Amino acid sequence: MSLPLPSTEGGGPVLADARQEGARRLWDAVLAQDETAARDAVLAAAESVGAESALLDVIGVVQRRVGAEWAADRLSVAQEHAATTINDRCVSALVRHPCAQAPPGPSAGHITVACVDGEWHGLPARLLSEVLRLRGWQVDHLGTLVPPPRLVAHLHRTGPAAVALSGSLATRLPAAHATIAACRAAGVPVFAGGSAFGEDGRYARMLGADAWAPDARGAADRLAAGPLPRPRPGHEPADHLPHLRDQEYTLVTRSAPQLVKAVVTGLTELLPAMRAYSAWQLQQTAQDIAHIVEFLGAALYVDDDDLFTGFICWTADILTARHVPANVLLPTLDLLGAELGDFPRATRLIRRGARELTDRPAPNSPAPEVHR
Rank of each mutant, 00 (worst) to 15 (best):
Q258W: 12
A18R: 13
R217D: 14
L94V: 04
D200G: 11
G11P: 02
A93V: 02
F295S: 00
A82T: 02
T358Y: 10
L259P: 05
V14G: 07
L223Y: 04
V116N: 02
L329F: 12
A256S: 15
W137C: 00
P257Y: 07
R135Y: 05
W27L: 09
V62Y: 06
G193T: 08
D221C: 03
P227D: 15
L151E: 13
A219Q: 07
V116E: 03
S168V: 11
C90A: 14
L340K: 06
P237W: 07
A367F: 08
A213H: 03
G187Y: 09
L241H: 11
S129N: 03
V14I: 12
D117P: 00
T265R: 14
A192S: 10
I289C: 08
R19A: 01
A32N: 01
L349W: 05
G226K: 08
R19C: 07
L134I: 07
Q33A: 15
V49A: 02
L123W: 09
A316P: 00
S53K: 03
A192V: 05
D288A: 15
P242S: 08
G201W: 11
D221R: 12
A83Y: 06
A178Q: 14
D17A: 14
A256D: 07
R89I: 00
F295A: 01
A170K: 12
Q33Y: 01
G122N: 02
A299P: 07
H156Y: 11
I312M: 11
Y277P: 10
T358S: 13
F308S: 10
A175T: 03
G167C: 06
R184M: 09
T144W: 02
A262H: 06
C183V: 05
T179G: 01
T315V: 05
A196D: 13
G310P: 09
D28M: 05
V113P: 04
P124R: 04
T158N: 10
E35G: 03
F197V: 03
S365H: 11
L296D: 14
P103L: 07
H291N: 06
G297N: 04
V260E: 09
D215Q: 06
E356G: 01
V293I: 12
M206Y: 00
V152Q: 00
T265C: 11
P147E: 05
L165T: 10
A82D: 10
W212F: 13
G218F: 05
D210L: 00
I111V: 14
L330V: 07
Q138W: 00
S129Y: 03
A178G: 13
F308K: 08
L134V: 07
A38D: 10
P148Q: 05
D304Y: 00
P6F: 06
G187N: 07
L142G: 13
A262N: 07
A211E: 15
A321P: 00
A346Y: 11
